[in-house]
Design a protein around this nucleic acid. Structure first.
Lengths: 132, 132
DNA sequence: ATGCACCTTGTAGTAACTACAAGGTCAAGC
DNA sequence: GCTTGACCTTGTAGTTACTACAAGGTGCAT
Protein backbone atom coordinates (compact mmCIF):
# COMPACT_ATOMS: atom_id res chain seq x y z
CA UNK A 1 0.00 0.00 0.00
CA UNK A 2 1.21 3.52 -0.72
CA UNK A 3 1.70 6.33 1.76
CA UNK A 4 -1.57 8.09 1.00
CA UNK A 5 -3.66 5.02 1.70
CA UNK A 6 -1.72 4.27 4.88
CA UNK A 7 -2.34 7.85 5.96
CA UNK A 8 -6.08 7.52 5.33
CA UNK A 9 -6.30 4.19 7.15
CA UNK A 10 -4.34 5.23 10.22
CA UNK A 11 -5.30 8.89 10.44
CA UNK A 12 -1.62 9.87 10.43
CA UNK A 13 -0.67 12.44 7.80
CA UNK A 14 1.70 11.41 5.01
CA UNK A 15 4.13 14.06 6.15
CA UNK A 16 4.10 12.69 9.68
CA UNK A 17 4.74 9.17 8.37
CA UNK A 18 7.79 10.43 6.49
CA UNK A 19 8.81 12.32 9.62
CA UNK A 20 8.66 9.07 11.64
CA UNK A 21 10.81 7.41 9.04
CA UNK A 22 13.39 10.19 9.28
CA UNK A 23 13.30 9.85 13.09
CA UNK A 24 13.93 6.12 12.77
CA UNK A 25 10.84 5.07 14.69
CA UNK A 26 9.32 3.58 11.55
CA UNK A 27 11.64 1.59 9.28
CA UNK A 28 12.06 2.73 5.68
CA UNK A 29 9.70 0.48 3.72
CA UNK A 30 10.56 -1.18 0.40
CA UNK A 31 9.95 0.94 -2.68
CA UNK A 32 7.98 0.19 -5.80
CA UNK A 33 9.62 0.53 -9.20
CA UNK A 34 8.29 4.07 -9.23
CA UNK A 35 10.18 4.75 -5.96
CA UNK A 36 6.94 4.91 -3.96
CA UNK A 37 6.98 3.70 -0.35
CA UNK A 38 5.29 0.31 -0.20
CA UNK A 39 3.69 -0.45 3.17
CA UNK A 40 2.23 -3.72 4.48
CA UNK A 41 0.01 -4.62 7.45
CA UNK A 42 2.97 -4.72 9.86
CA UNK A 43 3.74 -1.05 9.24
CA UNK A 44 0.07 -0.22 9.58
CA UNK A 45 -0.04 -1.91 13.01
CA UNK A 46 3.15 -0.19 14.10
CA UNK A 47 1.87 3.20 13.01
CA UNK A 48 -1.44 2.66 14.77
CA UNK A 49 0.50 1.76 17.88
CA UNK A 50 2.57 4.92 17.70
CA UNK A 51 -0.50 7.06 17.15
CA UNK A 52 -2.40 5.51 20.07
CA UNK A 53 0.57 5.69 22.38
CA UNK A 54 1.11 9.38 21.52
CA UNK A 55 -2.57 10.00 22.22
CA UNK A 56 -2.07 8.41 25.64
CA UNK A 57 0.62 10.92 26.47
CA UNK A 58 3.69 8.74 25.97
CA UNK A 59 6.74 10.59 24.70
CA UNK A 60 8.54 9.48 21.57
CA UNK A 61 11.40 8.28 23.79
CA UNK A 62 9.02 6.11 25.79
CA UNK A 63 7.41 4.79 22.61
CA UNK A 64 10.84 3.96 21.26
CA UNK A 65 11.45 1.88 24.40
CA UNK A 66 8.14 0.09 24.02
CA UNK A 67 8.87 -0.66 20.38
CA UNK A 68 12.31 -1.90 21.37
CA UNK A 69 10.62 -4.40 23.70
CA UNK A 70 8.77 -5.59 20.66
CA UNK A 71 11.67 -5.50 18.22
CA UNK A 72 14.53 -7.01 20.21
CA UNK A 73 13.20 -10.53 20.61
CA UNK A 74 16.67 -11.71 21.53
CA UNK A 75 17.25 -9.50 24.53
CA UNK A 76 17.76 -10.65 28.11
CA UNK A 77 14.81 -11.49 30.30
CA UNK A 78 16.16 -9.23 33.03
CA UNK A 79 16.22 -6.30 30.66
CA UNK A 80 12.74 -6.94 29.37
CA UNK A 81 11.43 -7.40 32.87
CA UNK A 82 12.83 -4.14 34.22
CA UNK A 83 11.63 -2.11 31.27
CA UNK A 84 8.22 -3.74 31.14
CA UNK A 85 7.73 -3.20 34.88
CA UNK A 86 8.59 0.46 34.61
CA UNK A 87 6.18 0.91 31.72
CA UNK A 88 3.53 -1.08 33.59
CA UNK A 89 3.79 1.32 36.51
CA UNK A 90 3.27 4.32 34.26
CA UNK A 91 0.34 2.62 32.52
CA UNK A 92 -1.31 1.80 35.83
CA UNK A 93 -0.96 5.36 37.10
CA UNK A 94 -2.55 6.63 33.92
CA UNK A 95 -5.42 4.15 34.21
CA UNK A 96 -6.09 5.22 37.81
CA UNK A 97 -6.20 8.88 36.86
CA UNK A 98 -8.49 8.22 33.92
CA UNK A 99 -10.80 6.10 36.05
CA UNK A 100 -11.14 8.91 38.57
CA UNK A 101 -11.92 11.28 35.73
CA UNK A 102 -14.41 8.83 34.22
CA UNK A 103 -16.21 8.45 37.54
CA UNK A 104 -16.49 12.18 37.95
CA UNK A 105 -17.70 12.81 34.38
CA UNK A 106 -20.25 10.02 34.83
CA UNK A 107 -21.44 11.60 38.07
CA UNK A 108 -21.90 14.96 36.35
CA UNK A 109 -23.85 13.42 33.48
CA UNK A 110 -26.07 11.56 35.92
CA UNK A 111 -26.69 14.76 37.87
CA UNK A 112 -27.63 16.49 34.63
CA UNK A 113 -30.18 13.81 33.86
CA UNK A 114 -31.87 14.70 37.14
CA UNK A 115 -31.77 18.33 36.08
CA UNK A 116 -29.75 19.01 39.20
CA UNK A 117 -26.65 20.68 37.93
CA UNK A 118 -24.61 19.86 40.98
CA UNK A 119 -21.06 20.98 41.47
CA UNK A 120 -18.17 19.81 39.39
CA UNK A 121 -15.41 17.90 41.13
CA UNK A 122 -13.35 17.08 38.05
CA UNK A 123 -10.36 18.92 39.41
CA UNK A 124 -10.46 17.01 42.68
CA UNK A 125 -10.70 13.76 40.69
CA UNK A 126 -7.27 14.24 39.18
CA UNK A 127 -5.67 16.46 41.79
CA UNK A 128 -4.46 14.10 44.48
CA UNK A 129 -1.22 15.01 46.16
CA UNK A 130 1.61 14.94 43.66
CA UNK A 131 4.42 12.43 43.54
CA UNK A 132 7.94 13.71 42.91
CA UNK B 1 2.50 29.95 49.18
CA UNK B 2 5.00 31.35 46.70
CA UNK B 3 5.73 30.12 43.20
CA UNK B 4 8.84 28.15 44.10
CA UNK B 5 7.06 26.10 46.74
CA UNK B 6 4.10 25.48 44.43
CA UNK B 7 6.56 24.33 41.78
CA UNK B 8 8.22 21.92 44.19
CA UNK B 9 4.89 20.53 45.43
CA UNK B 10 3.33 20.01 42.00
CA UNK B 11 6.39 19.18 39.97
CA UNK B 12 5.58 21.99 37.52
CA UNK B 13 8.42 24.43 36.91
CA UNK B 14 8.00 28.03 38.04
CA UNK B 15 8.41 29.17 34.46
CA UNK B 16 5.67 26.84 33.32
CA UNK B 17 3.36 28.15 36.05
CA UNK B 18 3.91 31.72 34.82
CA UNK B 19 3.40 30.43 31.26
CA UNK B 20 0.01 28.97 32.29
CA UNK B 21 -0.92 32.30 33.82
CA UNK B 22 -0.04 34.13 30.57
CA UNK B 23 -2.11 31.56 28.66
CA UNK B 24 -5.07 32.21 30.95
CA UNK B 25 -5.46 28.61 32.05
CA UNK B 26 -4.40 29.50 35.57
CA UNK B 27 -5.79 32.72 37.04
CA UNK B 28 -3.37 35.40 38.18
CA UNK B 29 -3.10 34.88 41.94
CA UNK B 30 -3.11 37.68 44.51
CA UNK B 31 0.27 39.22 45.22
CA UNK B 32 2.07 39.75 48.49
CA UNK B 33 3.29 43.24 49.42
CA UNK B 34 6.60 42.27 47.80
CA UNK B 35 4.69 41.58 44.55
CA UNK B 36 5.22 37.82 44.88
CA UNK B 37 2.51 35.49 43.55
CA UNK B 38 0.57 34.09 46.49
CA UNK B 39 -0.97 30.68 45.83
CA UNK B 40 -3.47 28.68 47.91
CA UNK B 41 -4.64 25.05 47.86
CA UNK B 42 -7.17 25.72 45.07
CA UNK B 43 -4.42 26.73 42.66
CA UNK B 44 -2.39 23.74 43.76
CA UNK B 45 -5.28 21.40 42.91
CA UNK B 46 -5.87 23.10 39.57
CA UNK B 47 -2.23 22.89 38.65
CA UNK B 48 -2.08 19.22 39.62
CA UNK B 49 -5.11 18.67 37.44
CA UNK B 50 -3.50 20.37 34.48
CA UNK B 51 -0.28 18.42 34.91
CA UNK B 52 -2.07 15.07 35.17
CA UNK B 53 -4.35 15.81 32.25
CA UNK B 54 -1.36 16.80 30.09
CA UNK B 55 0.35 13.57 31.09
CA UNK B 56 -2.73 11.69 29.92
CA UNK B 57 -2.40 13.21 26.49
CA UNK B 58 -5.12 15.85 26.68
CA UNK B 59 -4.40 18.99 24.70
CA UNK B 60 -4.49 22.39 26.33
CA UNK B 61 -7.72 23.11 24.42
CA UNK B 62 -9.32 19.97 25.86
CA UNK B 63 -8.08 20.82 29.35
CA UNK B 64 -9.52 24.29 28.97
CA UNK B 65 -12.90 22.69 28.23
CA UNK B 66 -12.65 20.41 31.23
CA UNK B 67 -11.75 23.34 33.45
CA UNK B 68 -14.66 25.30 31.99
CA UNK B 69 -16.97 22.50 33.11
CA UNK B 70 -15.59 23.06 36.54
CA UNK B 71 -15.58 26.85 36.47
CA UNK B 72 -18.95 27.69 34.90
CA UNK B 73 -21.18 26.41 37.66
CA UNK B 74 -24.03 28.43 36.19
CA UNK B 75 -24.07 26.92 32.73
CA UNK B 76 -26.89 24.96 31.13
CA UNK B 77 -27.35 21.29 31.87
CA UNK B 78 -27.55 20.53 28.15
CA UNK B 79 -24.20 22.16 27.57
CA UNK B 80 -22.56 20.38 30.47
CA UNK B 81 -24.07 17.09 29.40
CA UNK B 82 -22.87 17.26 25.81
CA UNK B 83 -19.37 18.32 26.78
CA UNK B 84 -19.09 15.80 29.61
CA UNK B 85 -20.30 12.99 27.33
CA UNK B 86 -17.76 13.83 24.68
CA UNK B 87 -14.96 13.90 27.24
CA UNK B 88 -16.24 10.67 28.76
CA UNK B 89 -15.98 8.98 25.37
CA UNK B 90 -12.39 10.08 24.98
CA UNK B 91 -11.55 8.99 28.53
CA UNK B 92 -13.08 5.56 27.97
CA UNK B 93 -11.17 5.02 24.75
CA UNK B 94 -7.96 5.91 26.52
CA UNK B 95 -8.75 3.52 29.40
CA UNK B 96 -9.41 0.66 26.95
CA UNK B 97 -6.13 1.24 25.16
CA UNK B 98 -4.20 1.41 28.41
CA UNK B 99 -5.86 -1.74 29.72
CA UNK B 100 -4.83 -3.63 26.59
CA UNK B 101 -1.30 -2.33 27.05
CA UNK B 102 -1.33 -3.27 30.75
CA UNK B 103 -2.46 -6.80 29.95
CA UNK B 104 0.27 -7.24 27.41
CA UNK B 105 3.00 -5.82 29.66
CA UNK B 106 1.76 -8.07 32.48
CA UNK B 107 1.88 -11.07 30.18
CA UNK B 108 5.46 -10.28 29.19
CA UNK B 109 6.56 -9.90 32.81
CA UNK B 110 4.90 -13.20 33.69
CA UNK B 111 6.61 -14.92 30.77
CA UNK B 112 9.93 -13.53 31.98
CA UNK B 113 9.38 -14.98 35.43
CA UNK B 114 9.16 -18.40 33.78
CA UNK B 115 12.38 -17.58 31.95
CA UNK B 116 10.48 -18.09 28.72
CA UNK B 117 11.05 -14.92 26.81
CA UNK B 118 8.03 -15.34 24.60
CA UNK B 119 7.13 -12.98 21.84
CA UNK B 120 6.02 -9.41 22.39
CA UNK B 121 2.52 -8.48 21.31
CA UNK B 122 2.55 -4.91 22.60
CA UNK B 123 1.98 -3.50 19.15
CA UNK B 124 -1.03 -5.70 18.58
CA UNK B 125 -2.41 -4.63 21.97
CA UNK B 126 -2.77 -1.02 20.81
CA UNK B 127 -3.05 -1.48 17.08
CA UNK B 128 -6.69 -2.34 16.48
CA UNK B 129 -8.22 -0.96 13.32
CA UNK B 130 -8.27 2.80 13.41
CA UNK B 131 -11.32 5.01 13.75
CA UNK B 132 -11.58 8.00 11.41
C1' DA C 1 25.95 43.31 53.02
C1' DT C 2 25.62 38.99 50.92
C1' DG C 3 22.86 35.67 48.93
C1' DC C 4 18.81 33.62 47.47
C1' DA C 5 14.13 33.57 45.86
C1' DC C 6 11.36 36.14 43.67
C1' DC C 7 9.94 40.01 40.10
C1' DT C 8 9.82 41.75 35.02
C1' DT C 9 10.52 41.55 29.75
C1' DG C 10 12.42 39.38 26.11
C1' DT C 11 14.64 35.98 23.22
C1' DA C 12 15.66 31.56 21.84
C1' DG C 13 15.72 26.44 22.12
C1' DT C 14 13.16 21.83 22.24
C1' DA C 15 9.76 18.08 20.88
C1' DA C 16 6.57 16.51 17.89
C1' DC C 17 4.52 17.65 14.47
C1' DT C 18 2.26 20.41 10.28
C1' DA C 19 2.33 23.07 6.16
C1' DC C 20 3.87 24.65 2.04
C1' DA C 21 7.01 25.55 -1.88
C1' DA C 22 9.79 24.14 -5.82
C1' DG C 23 10.80 20.93 -8.99
C1' DG C 24 10.43 16.04 -10.59
C1' DT C 25 8.26 11.09 -11.59
C1' DC C 26 4.63 7.87 -12.59
C1' DA C 27 0.32 5.88 -14.22
C1' DA C 28 -4.58 6.18 -15.42
C1' DG C 29 -8.11 8.21 -18.25
C1' DC C 30 -9.74 11.13 -22.19
C1' DG D 1 -0.14 12.11 -26.18
C1' DC D 2 -1.35 14.90 -22.69
C1' DT D 3 -3.42 16.19 -18.57
C1' DT D 4 -4.34 15.15 -13.74
C1' DG D 5 -3.47 13.45 -9.33
C1' DA D 6 -0.71 10.92 -6.19
C1' DC D 7 3.55 10.28 -5.19
C1' DC D 8 8.87 11.59 -4.91
C1' DT D 9 12.73 14.85 -3.08
C1' DT D 10 14.86 18.83 -0.26
C1' DG D 11 14.17 22.65 2.34
C1' DT D 12 12.09 26.19 5.14
C1' DA D 13 8.95 27.88 8.30
C1' DG D 14 4.82 27.71 11.43
C1' DT D 15 2.41 25.54 15.69
C1' DT D 16 1.87 23.78 20.47
C1' DA D 17 3.43 23.34 24.85
C1' DC D 18 6.82 24.10 27.09
C1' DT D 19 11.92 25.14 28.87
C1' DA D 20 15.96 27.88 29.43
C1' DC D 21 18.52 31.77 30.01
C1' DA D 22 19.78 36.74 30.16
C1' DA D 23 19.49 41.34 32.03
C1' DG D 24 18.24 44.18 35.48
C1' DG D 25 15.56 44.90 39.82
C1' DT D 26 13.20 43.95 44.76
C1' DG D 27 12.53 41.69 49.29
C1' DC D 28 14.21 39.51 53.15
C1' DA D 29 16.87 36.47 56.16
C1' DT D 30 21.58 35.67 58.35
Amino acid sequence: MRIGQLARITGVKSETIRFYEREGILAAPPRTRANYRDYGPAEEARLNFIRRARDLGFSMARIRELLDLSDDADRSCAGIDALARSHLGEVERKISSLEALRTELGRMIAACEQDTVGDCRIIDALAGTAEP
